[in-house]
Amino acid sequence: MAYQISATKLQTYHRCPQAYYFRYELGLKTPGFFGNAKLGTALHQALAQAYRDWHYLDPVPPLDWVSSCWRRCSNNLSPNQAEEGQEILENYYYQFIAGETVMARPLAVEGLIKGRLLVNNLEFKVSGRYDRLDFLGDGLELIDYKSTKEVKLPKPDEIDLQIGLYYIALEQRYQSCLQQLSLLYLRTGEKIVFEASSEHKQQVETVIGELAWRLRTDEEWEPKTGEQCEACSFNRYCAAVQDQPEPLPQTANAPRQMQLSLNL
């Protein structure tokens, strides 16, 4: 049975192996996030429709086309949210569509990519979601829309892991390498581009190798202390942070009795 791994899981493990153990091995719950999630979801859906459903017989769609996509996706929003979303998409249109000679058809929108990786005789199933995949001259661009109000860049080591995971999955799915990962902040119109290379793939293979070793040997999932501890959802159970950590809740999964096996 292949072990499921995603960019979020890999970044959590890299940040702190014990936090990974609490969340993914013991199944402890994390508190939900609050925010303007409905507006962000609607913006993602409208852009997916705009690129996926355009007929591409004309070089560039009119603003009315993007607005019609927004109307279909904003039914469950408040009037203020619908107005705000319309303004965000209009700004996007004039910055990223109207000035183009031709709006290129994406390879795919709003999808899930999967791949497999064999490390230390264990099989991992890697997966990740994307908002848009575009063809470039000699590779692929993965575009991730961000609807946050401020531009908040991920830490370099964490974005490197995300790039490496997508690199592996895209190479297997499309036989084409990831050339760049772009974060596109919808509210500000900023597009941050990260170049991808085979070195990112090698880095992910190394980190997954460390994870595989722990899964096979049942070694201690030691904590990695740092600034992340303050915001960690599991710090009350952590002896590295608390002098008297709380006992694990009864809802915690039992530790694995048998770890992974390789599909033959």
Rank of each mutant, 00 (worst) to 15 (best):
N120A: 09
L260G: 13
Q4S: 13
Q175E: 05
G111V: 07
N75F: 14
R214I: 09
L39V: 08
K149V: 11
K201S: 09
P245T: 11
V207R: 01
L133I: 06
S176L: 03
L142G: 01
E171Q: 10
L211G: 09
L248T: 11
L39R: 03
Y167C: 00
A252R: 04
R173W: 02
H55E: 10
G209H: 11
R132F: 07
E227Q: 15
G139H: 00
Q95E: 15
Q172V: 04
Y56N: 04
N121V: 04
F194I: 04
Q203S: 13
E219W: 09
T101G: 15
G85E: 01
A104D: 12
S182M: 05
L264H: 08
N76M: 08
Q172A: 06
Y145S: 03
T251Y: 13
P17C: 06
G189W: 09
I143S: 02
L142I: 01
W213P: 03
S176W: 00
Q95K: 15
Q259N: 10
Q45Y: 12
P249M: 08
A37P: 05
E158S: 07
E222Y: 07
V60S: 04
L63H: 06
L140V: 00
Y166A: 01
Q49P: 04
K146Y: 06
I163P: 00
N235K: 13
C73Q: 13
A254I: 10
G40Q: 02
L260A: 14
K9W: 04
A2I: 08
K9I: 06
Y21H: 13
D64W: 10
R72E: 11
C229M: 03
E210H: 14
Q45A: 15
S176M: 04
Y13C: 05
A42E: 03
E110V: 15
G209A: 14
L28D: 02
L165A: 03
R216N: 12
G99C: 10
G32P: 06
K38Y: 07
F135R: 00
K149E: 12
L248W: 11
D243L: 13
L260W: 12
I88G: 05
Y94L: 14
L47R: 09
L118I: 15
L262P: 01
A98V: 04
P59T: 11
G111R: 06
G226V: 05
G111F: 07
P31K: 14
L264F: 10
N76F: 08
Q242N: 11
H55M: 07
T8N: 05
N120W: 03
W213T: 13
S197I: 01
E83Y: 05
D134V: 01
R52T: 08
P17S: 05
L142S: 01
E123S: 14
K224D: 12
G189A: 08
T225G: 08
E150I: 14
L170N: 01
R116Y: 12
R132G: 07
I5H: 00
Q180S: 02
K9L: 07
K29M: 10
Q202V: 12
F34S: 07
L153F: 05
Y56D: 02
L10T: 02
P249G: 07
A108H: 10
I192T: 03
G27N: 06
R132D: 04
